[in-house]
Amino acid sequence: MSAALVTRGLGRRYRSTWALQDCDLEVPAGAVIALVGPNGAGKTTLLQLVAGLQRPSAGSISLFGELAPAQSPQALAQLAFVAQDHPVYRRFRVSDLLHLGRSLNRTWDQDFAERRIAELGISPRQRTGRLSGGQQAQVALALALAKRPRLLILDEPVASLDPLARREFLQVLMGTVAGEGLTVLLSSHNIAELERVCDHLVVVAGGRVQLAGDVDSLLGDHRVLTGPSAGVPGGPGVVHVDQADRHAHVVARIGPAEPLPGWQARPIGLEELVLAYLRRAREPWPVPSEMELSA
């Protein structure tokens, strides 16, 4: 599989603070990548950098194998972006928005756009400012998809939607992914919702990428170990330790190896995995000893 997006040493600084730094990512084409992290972690910065809405302070971005200078026509033609709260021109009618898409893009699928709007039961004469949040999100998505992008970037696409609108939005999105082999990069708070839709995961906290990879292999690599608190293992594989009086739970990246004698291992869920990395980012666990993780 070729890479849709590669970033190298990517960083963005606002005056003296880095909103994002040392970001190295490789995203295969056709993947659905979830970008997870607390607010202010740098998610929006990363998405806007990739979309060319901001210029990197450091590092580089390449899209589909080509170094893509932000805002170059080549880069713009390949991607579509739906910002947080799916902003559209509120005084426009829906048909005006489609006219906008048609006149500003070289590749534009008017049939698709009109069909989507019709499927949504929205009149083209309707003013976008009068649409419900869910409808507005769907219109913004239709506008992005009608551009026929190879990479679709969505910033918190479902955060402001009610559960039904959220489901409908993801149905359309995933249906398009299945049909077109589109690469999707989306950020979200909602890990449960993401688990269904994403196959790749990027955890961001404190302006740095904490974890990135294929969801299945990440889940396969990590385990929750439970054992005596006296012998809590250390080493680079330890992600996070919850220590009780006599026993401890350790989230560790040990692959399929057998754990140390006296320790029980169980598989980890996506939520647990993400939380372990976010907690680690907040207060890095001091490595207590040099004991090996696995026997």
Partner: peptide
């Protein structure tokens, strides 16, 4: 079809 299941469930096509 994969696409039908995906649209029904709003899940990743790879899962199906």
């Amino acid at each position: 079809l994969i696409r039908e299941a995906v649209e029904q469930l709003a899940i990743n096509p790879n899962t199906v």
